[in-house]
Nucleic acid binder design. Structure first.
Length: 288
DNA sequence: CAATCGTCCTGCGGGC
DNA sequence: TGCCCGCAGGACGATT
């Protein structure tokens, strides 16, 4: 669920609130969430100062002084929630906003107390998410092993790159767009949205796509991801930003989660299929 | 190289 | 009303 726009939102907000703050204490409630023995993980982070938080693919990286890093993956249900020293989550009180999880809750896997009295919580219902503590060298090694493809909003991601990489691939285009080694950061929601915007059937094999079709896909990737970042992502399930606010791109979704509803362009019935054990919704008339 | 399945985990919704 | 089943999905490893 959290894909590039959601993770980007969390990274930039975390940088805003955590920059130059010092860790007072860490509590790990779920040992399997972290890559060290609980007491070691807690000890290594004590008194460390946070420099910034950034994103690579769907990975969040919290950078500390002295070359220490936490790489975090939210997987499906992970959330970072921030509570400043004197108030609760901002919430907002709009009923449509989101159901706010109480923090800490039974889903709080790791909590960070900062010396200014604020707290950061890593919540995760399904325990797929993780926090890995790395030295600079370990982080570089880890990222190298991941073999992430280019960032879709950076200059090295081009229509030509995309065409060259997929022109010989005899696989359906939709699951391919979710391959992190091809492009970093696209998941099930945005892959579906991109192909709708580009007017391409998700079942179409990559190696039959023309240069023009690939260019349409490329343009859809860039424009949709940019807009989704601007909207602070999509809350289709339980994504929230660090203040517990839902992402607004859900209002812009054209196909994801709209099985059997009518196409917003042509009015025909949207169809749901399974591809590589993932659901894909598309318009059989608009996407060919 | 491609396709598929199992795994991790829990809440929720559909069906009866 | 209540219970069971299966779905949701990011990413990796194993198998065919």
């Amino acid at each position: 669920m959290p894909e590039l726009p959601e993770v980007e939102t969390v990274a930039s907000e975390l940088t805003q609130v955590l920059k130059n703050k010092k860790v007072k204490a860490v509590k790990v409630h779920e040992p399997k969430t972290v890559n060290f023995l609980v007491r070691d993980f807690e000890k290594k982070l004590k008194n460390k100062i946070i420099k910034k938080v950034w994103r690579r693919a769907k990975l969040l990286v919290i950078e500390f002084e002295e070359g220490l890093y936490i790489a975090a993956h939210l997987k499906m249900t992970g959330q970072f929630l921030y509570q400043s020293n004197n108030n609760k989550l901002t919430g907002g009180g709009h009923p449509e906003d989101f159901y706010l999880q109480k923090i800490p809750s039974k889903f709080t896997r790791v909590e960070f107390a900062l010396t200014d009295g604020s707290h950061l919580y890593f919540n995760d219902i399904r325990k797929f998410g993780w926090l890995k503590l790395f030295s600079k060298k370990d982080l570089e090694e880890f990222l190298k092993n991941m073999q992430y493809g280019p960032e879709p909003l950076e200059k090295d991601f081009t229509a030509e790159y995309l065409f060259e990489k997929i022109k010989n691939r005899n696989v359906p285009i939709k699951p391919l767009l979710m391959d992190q080694k091809l492009i970093a950061g696209i998941g099930n929601i945005y892959a579906a949205e991109v192909l709708f915007k580009a007017g391409i059937d998700p079942q179409k094999k990559a190696n039959v796509l023309t240069k023009i079709e690939v260019k349409k896909i490329y343009q859809a990737i860039v424009s949709i991801l940019k807009l989704a970042v601007k909207y602070k992502g999509t809350t289709a399930d339980n994504f929230a930003d660090i203040f517990g606010q839902a992402g607004n791109y859900i209002k812009k979704l054209k196909v994801y989660g709209r099985k059997d509803q009518s196409c917003l362009v042509c009015g025909s019935k949207l169809k749901e299929i399974k591809q590589a054990q993932r659901t894909t919704v598309f318009c059989p008339k608009c996407q060919r």
